[in-house]
Amino acid sequence: FDIYVVTADYLPLGAEQDAITLREGQYVEVLDAAHPLRWLVRTKPTKSSPSRQGWVSPAYLDRRL
């Protein structure tokens, strides 16, 4: 999967189903980028939180090589 970094805090609107909150600087794996406005991502697990999966706007993501 492609690795992206979150460029700004992402707080989903209440109406968005299956969306997750992301923090600036967080790394995520993009699982599904087929839709231009919503990408399915999975967060990297940390010592304090397990990995999470949900939909985010790709405008908040920047690809890492």
Score class of each variant (00 low, 15 high):
11 L>E: 14
26 Q>A: 05
38 R>C: 08
31 L>N: 00
3 I>C: 08
45 P>T: 07
20 I>N: 02
12 P>Y: 07
40 L>N: 02
8 A>P: 03
14 G>E: 15
16 E>K: 05
56 V>S: 01
41 V>F: 01
48 S>A: 11
62 D>Q: 14
4 Y>L: 03
14 G>N: 13
43 T>W: 08
58 P>N: 03
22 L>E: 00
38 R>W: 11
57 S>N: 15
33 A>L: 05
5 V>S: 04
27 Y>R: 06
21 T>L: 11
37 L>H: 14
37 L>K: 09
40 L>R: 03
9 D>I: 03
8 A>T: 10
13 L>P: 13
60 Y>R: 02
22 L>M: 04
29 E>H: 07
17 Q>A: 13
35 H>F: 07
39 W>C: 02
17 Q>I: 14
34 A>K: 12
55 W>A: 01
34 A>C: 08
18 D>A: 06
58 P>E: 02
15 A>V: 12
13 L>D: 15
55 W>E: 01
15 A>T: 15
59 A>C: 07
24 E>Y: 12
9 D>G: 06
3 I>P: 03
23 R>D: 06
63 R>N: 10
1 F>G: 11
51 S>Q: 09
62 D>E: 15
21 T>A: 13
33 A>C: 14
31 L>V: 08
37 L>G: 12
3 I>T: 10
5 V>K: 07
4 Y>G: 01
28 V>E: 00
64 R>W: 15
46 T>P: 03
32 D>F: 08
37 L>Y: 11
44 K>V: 15
56 V>H: 00
50 P>V: 08
31 L>S: 01
64 R>H: 15
8 A>E: 08
44 K>I: 15
41 V>C: 03
16 E>Y: 08
58 P>S: 08
16 E>P: 08
2 D>C: 07
54 G>W: 05
8 A>D: 06
13 L>M: 13
51 S>W: 07
42 R>H: 02
60 Y>T: 03
43 T>G: 01
60 Y>C: 05
18 D>I: 04
57 S>I: 05
20 I>Y: 06
48 S>H: 14
30 V>Y: 01
47 K>R: 11
3 I>E: 08
47 K>E: 14
6 V>M: 03
15 A>N: 15
21 T>R: 11
34 A>I: 08
8 A>S: 11
49 S>T: 13
60 Y>G: 05
59 A>E: 13
46 T>R: 05
45 P>C: 08
55 W>T: 03
29 E>I: 13
11 L>P: 15
1 F>T: 09
16 E>S: 10
22 L>N: 01
30 V>I: 09
7 T>V: 14
13 L>N: 14
62 D>M: 12
33 A>G: 10
7 T>S: 07
58 P>C: 04
5 V>R: 12
61 L>G: 01
31 L>D: 01
28 V>Q: 00
21 T>W: 15
25 G>W: 02
20 I>F: 13
31 L>R: 02
59 A>D: 13
6 V>K: 00
4 Y>M: 06
59 A>S: 12
19 A>N: 10
52 R>Q: 14
40 L>D: 00
52 R>K: 13
38 R>N: 04
44 K>M: 15
45 P>A: 13
56 V>W: 01
25 G>H: 03
15 A>P: 11
27 Y>V: 13
32 D>V: 08
39 W>N: 00
41 V>A: 01
19 A>I: 07
36 P>A: 08
56 V>A: 06
4 Y>N: 01
50 P>N: 06
15 A>I: 12
37 L>S: 12
32 D>S: 09
7 T>W: 05
32 D>L: 07
40 L>S: 01
63 R>D: 07
10 Y>C: 05
44 K>C: 12
36 P>D: 08
28 V>M: 01
36 P>L: 05
26 Q>G: 03
26 Q>V: 07
16 E>L: 09
53 Q>I: 15
51 S>K: 04
49 S>C: 09
52 R>M: 13
29 E>G: 02
23 R>L: 12
46 T>G: 09
47 K>G: 12
23 R>S: 10
43 T>C: 06
